[in-house]
Design a binder for these strands. Structure first.
Lengths: 198, 198
DNA sequence: CCTACCGATCGGTAGG
DNA sequence: CCTACCGATCGGTAGG
């Protein structure tokens, strides 16, 4: 399993990463110039390079920081003794929470990872496959335990994870819905779709 | 409601659009050069301009051709007298079918529309909101008819539509699943999540 | 459909 | 953190 290192990060560098995440989301990675990032950070493009190594370093930071957080919560969860339905609900709530509160970064990790340079690209996809397979196993155990319907576990995983991306629409237009109400509605719909009726 | 015109399109231009859709998907709109599109079409970049007006024309063609097809099927559907559950199933199946068989174009319309130039961008978002609201009304009618659970109809719509994007994972790795099996598994999961248990 | 070429902008570096 | 600047590449045009 590929490890993601904890890195001491300067506050200035962190700020630049946040700005980059916002712009990478709004305009896409390739269409975002270093000059735009610099402008939002209140400096010249050349000065950015005192804080970061390259444009792709920023993308790498964002993608792997997200990947790392998702991996961590899954590891924590597996140490728990909750029912599989509770465990799944917990994963889905975490995804929704991140989608709501770390929107730009999650969006970039979800949609702009293809611009990672070769080595980091493979590493990222490796982490993601690893995550998918752990979740698939969770669903499999839930089916065996009779908690979930007899679905294809992998299809269930990618469907559930994708469904949460509906929150992208909410960010564009919240339709007067509070985050809490949004989360509750989505999770109900998703769990009803997979849990074994009794 | 914004109209999308039917346009007579030369076979060569259609071919170029297909190539563009593939590259816009794989590399993103901004990172795709006219020289790459030209190379795949077997000509020089300058020659492309005998068939198209500009790079953004290609994006516009792709996005609105997709928007148009989705609007059309919804209009056709509303002329039918199927139950609301059947109507919803039909919409979801159409989305899955497009996601499977017109993958590149659908992906571009889903993920690269933000690079449309100002006027077309608003027109595209307008069509999309119109589509969303028609679907939301379908869900509302289904709730009133007692066919669907008491969910927020708009949340249900964006969740359902997003869930189908799970097929993106399947394109990257089909996991040995046939399109038919994939469609069946997803639609079962989604319908169970929203239909009223009896 | 090609050659030749345009101005603009890109990520990044040198040197202070 | 800045000024000044680099080579590369971009979308697109002129003219044939």
């Amino acid at each position: 399993m590929p490890k993601v290192k904890d890195q001491i990060i300067s506050p200035r560098r962190f700020e630049i990463r946040q700005i980059a995440a916002k712009l990478f989301h709004e305009r896409g990675y390739s269409a975002t110039g270093m000059r735009s990032i610099a402008a939002e950070a209140g400096m010249e493009a050349a000065s950015l390079y005192n804080h970061i190594g390259s444009k792709s370093d920023l993308l790498e930071d964002i993608c792997f920081s997200m990947a790392d957080q998702f991996m961590r919560q899954l590891d924590d969860l597996e140490a728990s003794d909750a029912t599989l339905q509770q465990q799944l609900a917990s994963v889905l709530r975490f995804h929704m929470h991140m989608m709501i509160h770390a929107y730009h970064e999650v969006f970039v990790a979800n949609n702009e990872w293809k611009h990672l340079p070769g080595t980091e690209l493979s590493r990222f996809l490796q982490v993601r496959r690893h995550y998918e397979s752990k979740l698939t196993q969770l669903i499999e155990r839930g089916i065996k335990a009779g908690e979930f319907r007899q679905v294809d576990p992998w299809v269930a995983v990618v469907t559930l994870l994708s469904a949460i991306r509906g929150i992208e629409y909410w960010h564009r237009n919240p339709h007067g819905l509070s985050p809490r109400r949004l989360e509750l509605d989505i999770i109900t719909q998703l769990l009803e779709g997979i849990k074994q009726p009794r």
